[in-house]
Simulated assay, not measured.
Amino acid sequence: MKIRLWRLNWIIPLALLGLAGYLNSTHQVPVRSPGLPGLAPSSPIPSQLGNSQHLPYGKPLGTPEDNDVVCRPIYCLSNNGTTKMADWVAYRLTVDAITGDEEQSREWMPDPDLPPHKTLRPSDYRGVGALGYDRGHQMPLASARGGDWQLTNLLSNITPQRADLNRGAWLQLERAEREMAQQVETVYVITGTLYERPMPPLPHSSQPHRVPSGYWKVLWDGSRMYAFILDQDVPRDYDYRNGLTSVAEIERRTGLDLFPLMEQNQQQQLEQEQNLP
Rank of each mutant, 00 (worst) to 15 (best):
Thr186Ala: 11
Ala169Tyr: 08
Arg252Glu: 13
Pro56Phe: 00
Phe259Trp: 05
Asn265His: 14
Gln172Phe: 10
Tyr91Arg: 00
Leu49Ser: 02
Arg167Asp: 06
Arg106Ser: 08
Gly255Lys: 09
Tyr188Val: 00
Leu19Trp: 06
Gly129Ser: 10
Ser42Cys: 08
Pro60Leu: 02
Leu151Ala: 10
Arg224Phe: 04
Ser78Asn: 03
Ala20Glu: 14
His137Pro: 04
Arg210Asn: 06
His209Ser: 09
Lys2Tyr: 10
Gln272Tyr: 06
Val218Ala: 03
Pro56Lys: 06
Trp220Asp: 10
Ala90His: 04
Tyr75Cys: 05
Val31Asp: 11
Asp148Val: 02
His117Gln: 14
Pro235Phe: 08
Asn242Val: 00
Asn51Tyr: 13
Thr152Asn: 06
Pro212Thr: 08
Arg241Thr: 10
Trp88Ser: 01
Pro122Gln: 07
Asp124Phe: 04
Thr245Gln: 03
Pro34His: 12
Ile74Met: 02
Glu263Gly: 15
Ala176Lys: 10
Pro13Thr: 09
Ser123Pro: 00
Arg253Lys: 13
Leu244Thr: 04
Ile45Val: 15
Gly255Trp: 11
Pro116Ile: 13
Val189Arg: 03
Asn51Phe: 15
Lys118Arg: 15
Leu165Thr: 01
Pro34Gln: 03
Leu155His: 10
Gln48Pro: 00
Arg106Thr: 10
Gly214Ile: 03
Gly127Trp: 12
Leu173Ala: 11
Ser123Glu: 15
Gly222Lys: 04
Ile98Val: 15
Leu194Phe: 12
Tyr240Thr: 12
Ala130Ser: 12
Asn51Thr: 10
Trp10Lys: 09
Pro60Tyr: 03
Arg145Gly: 06
Asp124His: 06
Glu196Arg: 13
Val29Tyr: 09
Pro115Met: 10
Val184Gln: 01
Met139Gln: 09
Asn275Lys: 09
Arg72Ser: 08
Thr254Glu: 04
Asp96Gly: 05
Pro110Arg: 05
Asn79Trp: 07
Pro64Gly: 08
Pro198Tyr: 04
Arg32His: 12
Pro198Asp: 15
Leu230Phe: 05
Ser78Tyr: 07
Leu39Asp: 03
Ser205Lys: 07
Tyr75His: 14
Glu103Ala: 13
Tyr195His: 09
Arg121Phe: 14
Arg121Tyr: 11
Arg167Phe: 03
Glu103Arg: 13
Ile190Met: 13
Leu173His: 08
